[in-house]
């Protein structure tokens, strides 16, 4: 049955997300939530940031102060348990990310749905304008990512995620010994710790904008498509 034959009053549905993408998405939400909150627990053990290899205690880059208990795992000061949570979900985050990235590359999703198409660049001005005015596409095009979405997802998956993993590893003395180039790449262990913190903040900003746009462009439809895979297209 072609789309022309569908009754006009019934919304058309497209299968937007493969199972592996949906599972990876929700696993990622779990990982990032716990990594953020256990990360803030670890941060609270010494709530100052520095630049370079070592900590110049008299001149921190910033002393943001400790985060409140309701934002940390556990909710009370317990660095040992915070680390246990952080490293378990760090592993899960890495494994989940590798599965997702491999799937995207192998299935063609990376090339088809995430890489900006040639025509996208010509429309970038109008896409930005539409986004700022909160005008979202309707009809069959609504299921496809526009160029801003593509750039946002690409940079989170292929720039921010690898960077937060690498800066995390640069804080490991064992990894430092085997791969001292990581220290040079990030300008020292304390710089790596600071960058790790900044990227975590960028993840939070991404999540805020992401959830806001999901809510504004059809919350239930978007949510359903990430749970069941099916996205309905309004006519």
């Amino acid at each position: 049955m072609s789309s022309e034959e569908l009754p006009l009053d019934k919304p058309q549905r497209v299968h937007r997300y493969a199972l592996i993408v949906r599972v990876a998405h929700w696993t990622n939400l779990l990982c990032l939530t716990i990594l953020l909150m256990s990360g803030l627990q670890i941060f609270n053990a010494h709530p100052s940031l520095y630049w370079g290899e070592d900590s110049d205690f008299d001149r921190p880059l910033t002393a943001v102060g400790a985060f409140p208990g309701w934002l940390t795992i556990p909710s009370f000061q317990d660095l040992a348990t915070g680390r246990v949570w952080h490293f378990f979900f760090g592993w899960l985050f890495v494994i989940n990310g590798l599965v997702y990235a491999t799937y995207c590359a192998a299935s063609g999703r990376l090339a088809r749905d995430l890489t900006p198409a040639r025509g996208d660049w010509h429309r970038i001005r109008s896409t930005v304008r539409d986004h700022l005015m909160l005008r979202f596409p309707r009809g069959p095009g609504a299921a496809n990512y526009n160029v801003l979405q593509r750039l946002a997802y690409l940079s989170v998956v292929f720039v921010l995620a690898p960077l937060i993993i690498l800066t995390g590893l640069t804080m490991s003395p064992a990894v430092n010994a085997a791969m001292p180039w990581l220290l040079d790449l990030f300008g020292g262990r304390q710089s790596a710790r600071t960058i790790h913190f900044i990227i975590a903040a960028l993840f939070v900003s991404f999540a805020v904008v992401h959830v806001m746009l999901v809510a504004l462009s059809g919350f239930l439809n978007n949510l359903r498509s990430m749970i069941t895979g099916w996205f309905s297209i309004a006519r």
């Binding site: 941060f43 010494h46 680390r83």
Partner: peptide, 10 residues
Amino acid sequence: RHDCVEGWSC
């Protein structure tokens, strides 16, 4: 470099 579990280094 001495890395404390708390996060600082000397």
